[in-house]
Structure formats: structure tokens, C-alpha cells
Design a protein around this nucleic acid. Structure first.
Lengths: 143, 143
DNA sequence: AGCAATAATTGGAATTATTCTAATTCGAAG
DNA sequence: CTTCGAATTAGAATAATTCCAATTATTGCT
């Protein structure tokens, strides 16, 4: 099995013909490898222009299609900050996002060991959560 | 001081000439009273059509302007679910939102007593959070 | 291999929430 | 009552995303 680790990001050619139930096409491989390559939470447009470098014929619609396929198969996470364009994140571990207001940069923020949602939310009993998004904004202290 | 409580929602006329540093105009009063009236997290469009009942001449642009003024003065909260249109919430207490996937209805969810963000997030030290949004989606158990 | 069926890609048009613009109107202060 | 900055308005503009219909690729059969 091919490893999809942080600092060994695969070229499109290295990706197998199927991942997590999703058939990989040339374009999906390209898009996926772009998302895997840099952990900077690119927008669809960012992914589009990066993909064009290797595959100049790819279309923006296809990038949207591929991203949606990857997201719905759980291979990539879609990240939203208020009404900003969606961003895409290859980090599948349980985490949330912090946006530095100064630079716009988005950082992954992990939960502390053993923390469970239901532990700190007054949820109506019987609630089943299928999706959770935590978005933080602020500044990183500099002194 | 006029009380802006849950079940005594003020008519526009009852709102003072200034709230929280924001000068109240006829339209702002109308928009604010619409948001206060029902805790169903209306979109800008919802607010627009409800406002039109009492004030048929109000424009959508004005509704957006008023909502933005109310939000930036901390009188109303803007609530986002992924890429859906923004919704508006008069509940200023510390809480987050749960959307019932079946009905689309949004419920306020409060944090458990004494819970603090930094307690469960591995935040880079020195981080100052100015904005936090937690959005949940799922189903409410029915059995 | 050849071929039908199915799925993916493409470019461009369409949609939709929201913001912008420029003109008008309002309202508080003198 | 006039003035002047702010608010409102209608409509145009913007921007992210989705839709559409046509083309191209891929799969599964025989």
C-alpha cells in the first residue's frame, strides 16, 4: 500500500488506480496530488492553477468535480471560513482550523488528548453528529 | 433600559434611538426587530421578506447593510453553515449551532458549564482568538 | 480486439449570495 | 430652516460555484 504521508507527497503517477472506493482518473490524481503536496489549504482556484502547471488542459469545472469527489469519499477535507471561498485540506486527522487575521494563513489545530465533543456541549439527547466544523480566527502573539 | 428578552420581542417602535453604539434608524429597527422576533436563524432574504410586511419600501441592499451594522456592533450574530447563505441569530450568549440534516432547522447549542476553548485545543502559545464558530450537522435521534 | 454502456471531462452559460455604485433622501446639529 | 454626513435605494457588478450538453475516456462484455 502506498503511503500518503506528510513529507513524501506522491506525484500523480504514484497514486493507485483506486483510493477509498474512488476510481482515480488522470485529473483526480493530479488534483489529489496538488492538495497533498502543500498543506497550505488552497482554494479551488489555487488547485486549478497549480494543476495547470502539469496538466494545462484541465478545466476549472473538473477541478471542482474532482475536489467534490475527493471530499465525498473522505480523502480530502473541505474547510470553510465564513463566506470565504472553500479551501481544501489533506489532513484527515481530527482537527480544526485557525486563521491568522494578519496573514490569512490557516493553521491546523488539533484537539487535546482524549477530548470528546459531547463532553463540553449541551447536546439534545439522541443527537448524532455527522459533521463538525470548528473555525477560529485571531492573532498569534508576537512578543 | 429596554429589555431585549427571548419572549418579549420588541416592535421596531419600542427600540431606542441607539443600541450598543449603533444609531438606530427606521430600517435598522425594523431589521433588528425581525431578527429578534423569531429565533429561527433567518437568512438575509428571510429577513428581507419579513421586513417588507411592515415596511414595503425597504430594499434588500438595506437589509444587508443593516445586518452588517448589527453584526459589527455585536447586536446580532452571523451564522454560517458551509457554503449556505449566512443566517442571523439574536442569541448573544456563548453558543454554537447544530443543523438537523432532515429538516434544515438550526438549533442553538450551549457549552457546558465552565468549559474553556483553550482547555481542549492544542493552540500555539500566545494565540488570541477573536472569532470562533462551531457548526454541527446531524440527526436528532427519534426512537 | 471490437463495441456498447457508463462515467468523467470540458467550455461556457447560468445561478446565487453578496457587494458595489451613484443618486437620492434622511436626520441631527447648528 | 439649512447644511452636511450618513443611510437608503435600485440596479448593476462580482465571484464562487453549479449546471448543461457535447465530447472523450474507460470499463466490461463477447
Amino acid at each position: 500500500m502506498i503511503s500518503l504521508e506528510a513529507n513524501s507527497s506522491p506525484t500523480p503517477e504514484e497514486l493507485p488506480p483506486e483510493i477509498g472506493g474512488l476510481r482515480m482518473t488522470k485529473q483526480r490524481r493530479e488534483v489529489f496530488s496538488v492538495v497533498l503536496a502543500e498543506r497550505d489549504h488552497p482554494t479551488a482556484n489555487d488547485v486549478f492553477s497549480r494543476s495547470q502547471k502539469r496538466m494545462p488542459t484541465i478545466s476549472l469545472a473538473t477541478v471542482y468535480n474532482c475536489l467534490e469527489a475527493l471530499v465525498s469519499h473522505g480523502l480530502v477535507r473541505q474547510v470553510n471560513f465564513e463566506r470565504e471561498p472553500s479551501r481544501y485540506c489533506p489532513n484527515l486527522s481530527d482537527h480544526c482550523h485557525f486563521q491568522d487575521e494578519k496573514t490569512g494563513t490557516i493553521h491546523d489545530v488539533v484537539f487535546k488528548e482524549g477530548v470528546n465533543l459531547a463532553d463540553f456541549l449541551e447536546l439534545p439527547q439522541g443527537t448524532e453528529i455527522s459533521h463538525l466544523e470548528i473555525s477560529l480566527k485571531g492573532r498569534i502573539g508576537s512578543h
